[in-house]
Simulated scan of single mutants.
Amino acid sequence: MESIHKEVSLYGIEHHQGVIDTIIRELRIEACAFDVKLILVEAVMNAHYHGNQSDSAKPIMIRYSVRNRCLNIQVEDCGEGFKQLIFPDEIKNEHLLDEGGRGLYLIRCLSDNVKMIQNTIHINKTLTYP
């Protein structure tokens, strides 16, 4: 697989599904689409609601690259960032249906490595497909 490096700006979440579908097609990773789509949806929603405070005039930058089956994603918002963001290892049964908190957990579960640096979430995932 050739190396691909791209960046896209997204304003609000009205067209986020189409942008994510385009990223998956461009990277030719349809076989891994479920995991990658869920990771991106959760990261973009988190950026929009928490980082950009639901302000659709503020951009969300999605940078992505793939090389040797290693997918690297960065989702950057306009927020101030977090000094120490916790990506939970588990969610207790009594919190499974809570409105918030599952997104970071899902990103962590579906990724090899995830960290927040200032206002940008950095995600690495090894792509496994036939």
Rank of each mutant, 00 (worst) to 15 (best):
E2S: 09
E2D: 08
E2G: 04
E2C: 01
S3I: 07
I4Q: 03
K6F: 02
V8T: 13
V8Y: 01
S9C: 06
L10A: 14
L10D: 07
Y11G: 02
G12M: 02
G12H: 08
G12Q: 00
I13S: 04
I13A: 05
I13L: 09
I13H: 05
E14Y: 08
E14K: 07
V19S: 08
I20Q: 06
T22H: 04
I23C: 01
I24V: 11
I24T: 04
I24M: 06
E26S: 10
R28P: 01
I29S: 06
E30G: 06
A31P: 05
A31S: 14
C32I: 01
A33T: 01
A33R: 11
F34L: 10
D35G: 10
V36L: 09
K37G: 09
K37H: 07
K37D: 08
L38H: 05
L38K: 12
L40R: 04
V41N: 13
E42F: 03
V44H: 03
V44G: 00
M45C: 09
M45L: 13
M45W: 09
N46P: 13
N46M: 03
A47Q: 04
H48G: 05
Y49S: 02
H50M: 10
H50P: 00
N52F: 03
Q53D: 13
Q53P: 06
Q53H: 02
D55A: 13
D55I: 10
A57Q: 11
A57N: 08
K58F: 12
R63D: 02
R63F: 00
Y64C: 11
Y64M: 05
S65L: 06
V66L: 12
N68G: 11
R69L: 02
C70H: 13
L71I: 04
L71H: 06
Q74R: 12
E76V: 02
E76M: 14
C78K: 07
C78R: 11
E80V: 13
F82K: 07
Q84I: 09
Q84C: 10
Q84D: 15
L85D: 05
L85K: 08
I86W: 00
F87S: 07
F87K: 03
D89E: 14
E90R: 07
K92R: 15
L96P: 05
D98S: 12
D98R: 10
R102W: 10
R102L: 09
G103Q: 07
L104C: 14
Y105Q: 04
I107N: 00
I107Q: 01
C109H: 11
C109Q: 15
C109R: 10
L110N: 01
D112R: 00
D112Q: 09
M116C: 13
M116R: 04
Q118N: 08
T120L: 07
H122I: 08
N124T: 13
L127I: 08
L127A: 00
T128I: 15
T128W: 01
T128N: 14
